[in-house]
């Protein structure tokens, strides 16, 4: 933020700089100042609603503090982190979260690519209809999606078991089937987002390149592999990054469908339970901080490891 503050004299010059043919530096200064004046509020709000709370969480995580027992609040250093990291529950919920993330993102990428291809090539008469349809899962409330899928698979209300001839199979009675249904709901809801990002990528691939490849006698599959996909790598990576981190926060579906039973607890759910259910603010804050670090780690992996260039994907030069 320091770049926004200019000495009074400089401000004076900056103002006069908006004249007809300003000196380069003055003009740049004026622009810089205006830039920060315009973007500053949004920047400040973003910091206020995230940076401040996470710092507060870091601070709280160093205490043993139970909301119903405020008199016994005491500083315990890194004890909370030690308790969490030596507990299998943390690692289990981390693994469950990773499992859900990997499964959903992988399926969504393939499915989303298919959807994008169809939308890209669909007849102009069909396109608006498909577009409308695909936006519905994207925009529907996750909780609604969770209920719809839960009721579809539930023993008493669901039609899935009779349709699949599964009798009294209890989808929410053990780990694997519960995860399957959770992933289904997650995939259904978020594939459209991926497919729309991929559609944008598809549109970026120049028709000339496609035509050239066609003239060269490349088959549809070869063109897809050699021309289309390499040219939309940036879009794919951005879609992957956003969805991975979004999937990593999975909470709503688990809350509604299993409430964490059968070991389906995700990291977000674990954090929620420590603070909101158990009222252990210190322990819960520590889980929150660890979750945050995981997200940072994943982003760093993507950006450094896979070289995701976000500016490029967004059309920045």
């Amino acid at each position: 933020m320091s770049s926004t503050t200019l000495a009074p004299g400089e401000q004076e010059r900056a103002r006069t700089a908006s004249g007809r043919r300003p000196g380069l530096t003055d003009r740049a200064k004026a622009e810089r100042r205006l830039g920060w004046m315009l973007a500053g509020p949004a920047f400040a709000v973003m910091l206020l609603v995230t940076a401040y709370p996470i710092l507060q969480a870091v601070y709280e995580s160093l205490f043993d503090f139970r909301l119903t027992d405020p008199d016994n609040r005491s500083f315990t250093g890194l004890t909370n982190y030690w308790v969490i990291l030596t507990d299998w529950i943390w690692w289990r919920s981390l693994l469950v979260t990773l499992l859900i993330t990997v499964v959903t993102v992988a399926v969504e990428l393939v499915l989303g690519f298919g959807l994008a291809l169809v939308m890209h090539r669909a007849l102009t008469t069909l396109r608006p209809i498909i577009r409308t349809a695909i936006l519905i899962p994207y925009a529907i409330i996750t909780v609604v999606s969770a209920f719809a899928w839960q009721y579809a698979f539930a023993l008493d209300t669901g039609f899935v078991n009779p349709w699949l001839n599964l009798g009294a199979f209890n989808w929410f009675g053990s780990f694997s089937p519960s995860i399957v249904v959770i992933c289904l709901s997650e995939i259904w809801k978020t594939t459209p987002f991926i497919s729309l990002l991929l559609l944008a990528g598809l549109a970026q691939v120049s028709e000339d390149l496609q035509e050239a490849a066609k003239v060269d006698g490349a088959t549809w599959w070869e063109r897809l592999r050699k021309v289309t996909i390499p040219n939309m790598k940036a879009a794919i990576m951005v879609a992957l990054l956003f969805r991975t981190l979004d999937a990593f926060r999975v909470f709503d579906n688990i809350f509604i469908m299993t409430n964490g039973a059968n070991g389906t607890e995700s990291v977000s759910f674990l954090a929620y339970r420590q603070t909101i259910s158990r009222l252990e603010i210190g322990l819960g804050s520590a889980v929150s901080v660890l979750l945050f670090l995981c997200v940072v780690l994943i982003s760093a992996l993507f950006i450094k490891g896979f070289k995701v260039d976000l500016s490029q994907a967004r059309g920045e030069k």
């Binding site: 023993l155 008493d156 009294a168 209890n170 929410f172 009675g173 053990s174 039973a261 059968n262």
Partner: peptide, 11 residues
């Protein structure tokens, strides 16, 4: 009986 693991009072 069926689905004991998810059975609540209502079920």
């Amino acid at each position: 009986g069926p689905a004991l693991n998810t059975r609540n009072e209502d079920a």
